[in-house]
Design a protein around this nucleic acid. Structure first.
Lengths: 199, 199
DNA sequence: CGCGACGTTGATTTGCCTCAACGATTGTGG
DNA sequence: CCACAATCGTTGAGGCAAATCAACGTCGCG
């Protein structure tokens, strides 16, 4: 399978210099600890049973995190696009094997840093650590609102909310994956869309 | 409404000295910034529209965190029992008004500390800050596994999982609240229990 | 071309909701 | 202390949304 050549993303540099606030030479130092990983469509960044020891920045492409149940059914927990971070934090921080699959939905380019290096960077650059803590908080907030959504919205409302927040997702992710993310079966999503298009 | 007198909990002291690792005099210093709050059954620790500015340790009793939807329906996100912390972290850290209700299910005794004091304690005692960061991570893990449960288990399996993890909940929390937590209606929970008791 | 993956559509079943009524229990005021 | 209302859990009847099972058209690819 042939991969297009991918230009280095400016978003990555901006994240460290603008958002996190590292100086140019600090960014260069940090950046040197990342390595580029190309992952063709349908290939896996993480498999159940593996210990996840990388923090992975998704520089280009689209990926999904999902679990398998006892009957072999897939349940998609998250999608990720450009400028998102992926990995199984529990596995990273506890050293336990992961239960999660992380798979490329499109050909992907990741920028990956081993956890030990990441910890070293955090202790050398307090701003990086602060940013990471801040990210954990925002992550917490989004889990709470996701919980609220699941509990108080109808299937149709959750579908519309998804369209609203990530319109591009429908151009990049197969409908069956979106159905799994919304916790319905593909035929139900198909009928839901038909119903809505008639409005 | 009459409250029983409640003995100071040893769990609170153990948390700070054993788990967090503060010295005795450090604990005494920190502890002095908490104030005791008695909350009778059905009364509110937090109401939508309020800014939450307290970290609240539940010393005695049982409480629930829930949202109201547009139709006035309640959706319970969390229960809390002795030795749990409550509050709306998003509201605490962003200063935005909360959307959440936190209500006493039993007569409660909280130990509360204003957020600004908590930050001061964190910067004075790095161990406290480390513990809090660690707690955020564990919190993240539990959100992920909760998401996995909601997606991959049947209603019956989630009920059994709840029984398994919190057997005492059924002695302390009305069934209608448990139904809301499980995302079903009270009649459905009633029939589910009847079905299971026949096994 | 032929195969497989994907989205759609139809027919049927199922699990839960909704509405309603009913005992049991609790709490309150006379 | 009793009568009454309110709350709670249960049970029944009917309806609906989604799951399930199956078939079909389309597209992309070997």
């Amino acid at each position: 399978m042939q991969l297009h050549r991918i230009e280095p993303s400016e978003a990555f540099a901006k994240l460290f210099t603008r958002t996190i606030g590292l100086k140019e030479e600090e960014y260069v130092f940090v950046q040197a600890h990342f390595r580029r990983e190309y992952l063709p469509r349908k290939h896996f960044l993480l498999r159940p049973g593996q210990v996840c020891n990388l923090h992975s920045y998704l520089n280009k492409g689209c990926a999904r995190t999902y679990t398998l149940d006892d009957d072999g059914g897939e349940h998609i927990l998250f999608f990720a696009f450009e400028d998102w971070w992926m990995g199984d934090l529990e596995s990273i921080y506890t050293g336990q094997p992961s239960q999660l699959n992380i798979q490329a939905v499109e050909d992907c380019e990741f920028l990956c840093i081993p956890h030990t290096d990441f910890l070293a960077m955090e202790s050398r650059f307090p701003k990086l650590k602060e940013w990471h803590e801040e990210k954990m908080f925002r992550n917490h907030y989004s889990f709470v609102s996701r919980l609220v959504e699941v509990k108080s919205l109808t299937t149709e409302e959750r579908y519309l909310s998804l369209i609203n927040r990530f319109p591009e997702i429908f151009q990049r992710v197969p409908l069956q994956y979106i159905a799994s993310f919304l916790d319905i079966e593909p035929p139900s999503l198909s009928r839901l869309r038909k119903r809505l298009s008639g409005k």
